[in-house]
């Protein structure tokens, strides 16, 4: 593995569509649940331990060579909100495009053909890590980091929150990110022996409900 490849993939400027998504933060801001750095941190912590953990485990499993179609179905089952399923597929498709241009690979080409409208983003993230010569832990780290950096960046735009405060939130969460990435890798490594049910399925009711509410707004800044 090359450490630089991990930086390229984890870079917020990696052109895979993430900038247009708030990870549920826009709905939470509008509902008054995020009002500043402290509530942003609580939001990110909750997202990390639910959607972040699930995404990281899926990504780690895909990076470890588990069949992408099975993982994609497991992602569907763990994403009851149709708005979030659509978002995950859209982002998966966008990431697939960037990944194929960045790290050309037969495996990516095959999955792109299998899912012309996009596979779930964490699955594509794991395959991208694989194509970049990275491993399950790298993929899990990318996923957990994305699960909190997306909302933090969005809240800087939505609330004009001090960007230094938002970045400090991410730094404070770092030890928890490490633990969640670890847990994700452990579950993913058990998949070949125990099957997909061993993957975590942690859910956040307000993220699911908020995503449906957000999708119904006629006017919004972020796509999700």
């Amino acid at each position: 593995m090359t450490r630089t490849a991990l930086l390229v993939l984890a870079d917020g400027r990696f052109p895979a569509g993430g900038h247009a998504h708030s990870g549920g933060a826009e709905a939470a801001v509008k509902a008054g649940r995020i009002t500043g750095a402290q509530s942003l941190e609580a939001f990110c912590r909750g997202r990390l331990h639910t959607a972040g953990l699930v995404a990281a485990a899926l990504a780690a499993a895909a990076a470890g060579g588990v069949d992408p179609a099975g993982l994609d179905a497991a992602a569907d089952a763990r994403t009851p909100s149709p708005a979030l399923r659509a978002t995950a597929r859209r982002l998966g498709r966008q990431l697939m495009r960037a990944a194929r241009a960045t790290w050309p690979s037969d495996e990516l080409d095959a999955v792109a053909r299998q899912f012309p409208k996009g596979a779930h983003q964490p699955v594509v993230l794991g395959l991208t890590a694989r194509a970049a010569g990275l491993g399950p832990a790298d993929a899990a780290y990318c996923a957990v980091y994305e699960s909190v950096s997306g909302p933090a960046t969005a809240v800087v735009r939505l609330l004009s929150l001090d960007p230094f405060e938002a970045t400090a939130v991410l730094a404070r969460l770092a030890p928890e990110l490490d633990r969640v990435a670890d847990r994700a890798v452990t579950s993913a490594s058990a998949v070949p022996a125990e099957g997909l049910d061993v993957l975590p399925a942690a859910s956040a009711p307000l993220l699911e409900i908020g995503a449906e509410v957000h999708a119904a707004w006629p006017v919004r800044l972020f796509a999700s």
Binding site: G24, A28, R33, I34, S39, A42, F43, C44, R45, G46, R47, L48, H49, T50, L53, A73, A74, D76, A77, R78, P80, E176, L196, D197, P200, A201, A202, S203, A204, P205, L206, L207
Partner: peptide, 25 residues
């Protein structure tokens, strides 16, 4: 075929953020 798989953990000892703005608020 699995159509739904959902876990929820809440209360003291649950992973952080369970009572925060993303989960139960």
């Amino acid at each position: 075929r699995v159509v739904l798989d959902q876990e929820l953990a809440c209360g003291p000892g649950a992973p952080g953020g369970w009572d925060g703005p993303a989960v139960l608020a």
